[in-house]
Nucleic acid binder design. Structure first.
Lengths: 345, 345
DNA sequence: GTTTGCTACCCAATCGTTTGGGTAGTGAGG
DNA sequence: CCTCACTACCCAAACGATTGGGTAGCAAAC
């Protein structure tokens, strides 16, 4: 390992040491097919590379990007990193960015428009090469601004019509759940739908509802409860749903695992055994789902891949290429929370 | 808002527009008490500031740090951001860094020494002003290297003797749990101890064991099971513990909420009702704990504050000040999972 | 014996800021 | 009238890398 702090030795130092000009050293170390272009004699090139390695030379990215106008920095904005779903997607980003020699800033917007704008400005003032937006609201105002300002960006997790995004096929995911619950014989169902400004919430709900109706079922509007995405939101929503004596559903679809966990808690408080008295299905198949005391059925979305794809798309946008949105395919994982065969045993 | 992309207008542009020299503009916009030092006439200063705001001038951070040798960038390394505990701490960091006009890189090391080193090199090659290390291993090899290389850094979450850190008082936290379980009448207890290279695991376990013994209890070494920090790790560990017919504990302390959740699942599989047949207590009081179907008792650690304090400490280190480690105080939150009064009712 | 064409380099400008060191111009004091 | 101290600026050299455009030296071709 280099045991000195990066930055202690510059291109000029290397050049001086070897009696060369900095530009020559630069070409040797960073030139692409420069070797063919007669950049330097092979022997010299080797001397340079050897010394560079020996003294642990690492180019100053600030200087480089001052000159090249590229920072190799990406900005990532998410509602909150403490949302496991986004955290996992970020791991995918981290990995893919790393592979492409980019580094990333992440910031939390708490889904607050003012904060979104502020954080975006911070990232832009840092001169990021592009933005991955994980907290897009369906109204898309901010996105229109960004487009006008010619900032390269892509959406992740949540889609907005007209902008490139990397998402899960949420409509399909919702449909899978509807099919499953229908097959299990459920005819009275409710949806904990999430935040109406998020495409994830809207699409999953829509996919669920339309499939359920297509199968011949009925879902009144009142059975669709919009809520926060976290456990508390899920609990509150489920509380409301279960309190209604006139229409007590035998199954609840929560568009998010955390909301589902909250709903499980609520069911419990109402004296209902999840998986026997009421079925509950979540979304994302976060690592917790399978491990809960009563294992939670959930739609597995390829979160890591979504992050990775987002980076790939963004790099293409930065390169000036046109890109299309990517929708990754979800898979339903049925577990005890909605498996009546288990409850019957 | 500025509706142009930052970077489109430079100091030189401003100067030219106003018939001033760039250096004058620089002093006006960024000088501290320069006003007093006769930097510019008040009227001129105002003209400059007005124009800067009007055209949305924002200084190029690359150029600035090339000159000042300060990047206003902090590097944060965590085992994985998908660990809710670290994610929340990072939110604290994000917030505090933002307040101090710093931006942060976060990277995941998966607690793998090779990756830790690699990510650190990446951050250093980005010329971060300092590092917050959230994945320190007790052996501290990497930390010694960093110290020798004179890189400013502080530890977070996990402590290592001899280095400044921002942590929870884990020993106290463990002791609180021991006292609670003892008071509830538990005499046969087990510990799911976490990873032995993490101070969090070691200290919580140690705090627990020594208090329990001080109270007159016995805990054989075999009752302490080291495990991964996640749900799967907790489940496996608890499985082993509960399988032992000769010594079935009436209470289990898991040093981490996720491990505790896994343990709850295991208890369930063994036909035990958590809170009645077996008490389980976790650590960190993550947002899930209170919302679980059976609410989980847990030691609340001030995660957000730990992140904030880490930033404050680091900024002091960067400034060349000497700093002392900070230990924040945890609080025990008793819930159904270890409240026998509830189970009795 | 020029010309041509390489090879293997060097030169200098440039990116946008910062900062130590000037310097005109003005008014007051001696 | 000269000096002195301000005020309100300007100048130029950095910081570390990149890059378009040279150029010296040498061998082969004409």
């Amino acid at each position: 390992m280099t045991d000195i702090r990066p930055g202690s030795v510059t291109l000029k130092d290397l050049a001086a040491e070897l009696g060369l000009h900095p530009s020559t050293v630069s070409r040797i170390l960073h030139g692409k097919a420069d070797a063919a272009r007669g950049a330097a004699a092979p022997a010299t090139a080797q001397r340079v590379r050897d010394l560079a390695k020996k003294v642990g030379y690492s180019p100053d990215p600030q200087a480089t990007s001052l000159r090249t106008r590229r920072t190799h920095l990406l900005g990532v904005i998410v509602p909150r990193l403490s949302d496991l779903v986004l955290a996992v997607m970020y791991e995918g980003i981290d990995e893919a960015a790393d592979d492409a020699n980019y580094s990333t800033f992440v910031m939390n917007s708490r889904d607050d428009t003012a904060i979104q704008r502020r954080k975006m400005e911070i990232m832009l003032s840092r001169r990021v090469d592009g933005l991955i937006i994980g907290d897009a609201h369906l109204d898309g105002d901010i996105l229109t601004d960004l487009t006008e300002r010619k900032v390269p960006f892509v959406l992740m997790n949540r889609a907005v019509p007209g902008f490139a995004s990397a998402t899960c096929d949420d409509t399909l995911g919702g449909a899978l759940v509807a099919q499953h619950l229908w097959d299990q014989g459920h005819r009275v169902v409710s949806v904990i739908a999430g935040e109406p400004y998020a495409s994830t919430a809207v699409d999953r709900t829509h996919g669920f509802v339309s499939r359920f109706r297509a199968l011949g079922g009925t879902i009144p509007e009142s059975a669709i409860v919009w809520s926060r995405f976290d456990t508390t939101g899920g609990r509150t929503a489920a509380d409301g749903i279960l309190r209604d004596e006139d229409r007590r559903p035998s199954a609840i679809f929560a568009v998010n695992d955390f909301a589902a966990i909250g709903a499980m808690g609520a069911a419990n408080s109402h004296g209902l055994l999840v998986g026997r008295d009421v079925a509950i299905v979540g979304f994302n198949d976060t690592s917790l789902a399978a491990q809960l005391p009563i294992a939670l059925s959930s739609v597995r979305s390829p979160m890591l891949d979504i992050g990775r794809v987002a980076v790939k798309l963004l790099l293409r946008v930065i390169n000036g290429d046109a890109v299309e949105s990517v929708q990754l395919t979800p898979v339903l994982c049925v577990r005890d929370s909605s498996d009546f065969a288990w409850a019957a045993s």
